[in-house]
Simulated assay, not measured.
Amino acid sequence: MDYVLVHGAFYGGWSWQPVADALRALGHDVHVVAQLPSGGADPARLGDLAADVAHVRALVDGVGREVVLTGHSYGGMVVAELADHPRVRHSVFLAAFRPKRGQTLLDIRSPHPVEWVESREDGTLHVTADESIAREVLAADLDEPVFAAVHGRGGAQAAVSYTRPSSGPEHTHPVIYVVCERDKAIFPADQEKMADGADHVVRLDAPHLVPLTHPREVAELLAGVR
């Protein structure tokens, strides 16, 4: 089976590396999106949701075989746009935003204050510089030194990527939603709402950055998709 892994906001494909390594060890081909256009270090070059979708669509097209398309967090917004792609065999939303037609990320995010995200005048969003707050929200399971390294690799996210509405194409393949029950970035109650209508719902006892905190469990779950 081929897998295409789409990362979330503020991070890159490196956040999927432990899962990708585990899947490859199980004999699968894995294609990791290195960096979505909406994220990166240069604010002047950041794209929006449409640019992200075009980037991932080109990757899926290039695989040449059916794939399990998996999105974590913001990556779910991208995966949702490829719901009718002929080479996508399954869509997997991992603690991810799953919009309906016409919804933006801002429409479906939790109404709670988002104190761990900072907005800047250049049109970018960033994870707070306060490591203790970020770790508590995103990955409390990681030891402080380990999370410090993760935190240091974080980058900017284009604010405009949160305001582009989903085109909401109809799914032509099964959908799996994975709820992370200790998530403090996208609250489990909100994930349960977005999981409504999925063909299969899985629940993990994990925080938001589950590809880094529980890579073996995620890899085994994905490897079981047929």
Score class of each variant (00 low, 15 high):
His214Arg: 14
Gly39Ala: 15
Gly76Arg: 02
Arg109Tyr: 04
Arg120Lys: 13
Val19Asp: 03
Leu46Gly: 08
Ser161Tyr: 10
Ser167Ile: 09
Ala51Val: 02
His126Ile: 06
Glu121Arg: 12
Phe10Arg: 02
Ala20Pro: 02
Gly152Phe: 12
Glu192Asp: 12
Asp141Ser: 14
Ser119Arg: 14
Ala159Val: 13
Asp52Cys: 11
Val6Ala: 10
Gln17Leu: 12
Val19Ala: 03
His90Ile: 11
Val78Pro: 04
Gly8Tyr: 01
Val175Gly: 00
Phe147Val: 10
Ala58Pro: 10
Gly39Cys: 15
Ala148Gly: 11
His171Ile: 00
Asp29His: 14
Thr104Cys: 09
Met194Val: 04
Asp143Leu: 13
Val201Cys: 06
Val68Glu: 01
Arg182Tyr: 09
Arg135Lys: 13
Arg101Gly: 07
Leu26Ile: 00
Ala20Phe: 06
Ser132His: 14
Val179Lys: 01
Ser167Tyr: 05
His200Gly: 00
Lys184His: 15
Asp29Cys: 07
Pro18Tyr: 08
Ser91Leu: 13
Glu170Ser: 15
Gln157Glu: 15
Ala95Ser: 15
Leu138Cys: 11
Leu222Pro: 02
Leu5Thr: 03
Arg226Asp: 14
Phe187His: 07
Arg45Trp: 02
Arg226Thr: 12
His7Glu: 03
Met1Ala: 12
Val78Phe: 08
Pro211Arg: 09
Gly123Pro: 05
Arg45His: 14
Ser167His: 15
Arg153Met: 14
Asp29Tyr: 01
Gln191Thr: 07
Pro86Ile: 08
Val114Gly: 00
Gly12Met: 00
